[in-house]
Design a protein around this nucleic acid. Structure first.
Lengths: 205, 205
DNA sequence: ACCTGAACACCGTTCAAGT
DNA sequence: ACCTGAACACCGTTCAAGT
């Protein structure tokens, strides 16, 4: 077999296979993706440019099938919560992909659309123009971090009881990874909304 | 040469070499570390266990030579600012190391000491016990994210002007990477302090 | 146009062998 | 105890060759 009548390969199949591997093992490789599809390793280069390209395609997949509910009726703080949650949920569906994303720049346009909505909402909040970029960055850190938390093992710091009393008290109420990640994200989101409110109110004086 | 009278190798030399490589190239490898020290690749395994071990040793290095000023006299919000800045500055000295750190759990005890100080300060702020863990996680996200920002290229989203007006306005005031990272961190820190204040005040009602 | 197979320059880790 | 060199099972990427 050299040139089949209908192509054996598609970009979609490559991204599918890579995403399955990342979900299962935390990483992917060309040999494994190729084996999973049943094609030779070098054939992948007919559809994609390189490893980075596959990662960027996976990032796009995270947000492509996301439905954002209408935000018109909502006050800015509710709208902001919806958007930041949607952003976090995108990452949280494939948490083991996040470490591969952080060392690479965003190129996907679907993600940029989500950013635009967040920027609009922050303008509605009354945040001054110079603070909107920094606010989006902060939201980025929160969403990425909260998703990363999902990949962490059950106990994070495991502080020696006697030496670090305050930390020991804080981690004593230990739950599942999911509960801990959700609690951290919920707290971060509350802090964000409260902080943006305070920042925005400074504009009125 | 097989067994030299005094060892050619030390853990310190390995961590030094790996850190230089990460700073310069964003990654390190056993062959490159060994070549830089002038020793064979397999000799490294006399001092360290594996690749993860080297990464964890580099994480420790970030905070080992950090001097934290005394916090006794300070109000909780000032103290919190000092600690979170110290945490961020630790990462910021070797920003290209951060992507290697995010997929691995914290084992270094110097870092845990910093966490303890933050936990104490959050207790002083009046934050309820159940919120201290989530608050530390949020601080983690902020510090890691702000350091990651330093590795990003100059333009992050580069939004097509017409299609994403709000985002275009927000990114129009573009500065250097360092300025942008600092602005984002400063905003995030303000939001954090304001948010913690709001959260803590709920305990008084 | 679309695939295979071989080739190349890289990895991390193990292990027998030397002193 | 401490090092070397060879070996192994992996990588990402390129390219000539086939239809």
């Amino acid at each position: 077999m050299a040139r089949p009548p209908s192509p054996l390969l598609s970009v979609e199949a490559i991204v599918d296979a890579a995403l399955v591997l990342v979900d299962e093992t935390g990483d992917f490789s060309f040999p494994k993706v190729a084996r999973r599809i049943g094609v030779s390793q070098s054939a992948l280069y007919n559809r994609i440019d390189n490893r980075e390209h596959i990662i960027e395609l996976m990032r796009g997949r995270l947000f492509s099938d996301q439905v954002i509910p209408p935000l018109e009726g909502l006050p800015w703080d509710e709208a902001l919560r919806v958007l930041v949650r949607a952003y976090r949920d995108g990452f949280a569906e494939h948490p083991r992909l996040v470490p591969l994303l952080v060392s690479q720049t965003v190129q996907d346009l679907g993600v940029v659309g989500l950013y635009e909505n967040i920027a609009i909402t922050l303008e509605r909040a009354g945040l001054e123009q110079a603070h909107i970029g920094p606010a989006i960055a902060t939201i980025d850190y929160l969403a990425l971090g909260a998703a990363l938390e999902l990949t962490a093992p059950a106990v994070v710091w495991s502080p020696p009881a006697g030496e670090f009393p305050a930390l020991h008290r804080a981690t004593a109420l230990s739950e599942s990874v999911e509960q801990r990640a959700e609690a951290a994200f919920a707290f971060g989101l509350d802090v964000l909304v409260a902080g943006v409110r305070v920042k925005a109110s400074h504009n009125f004086f």
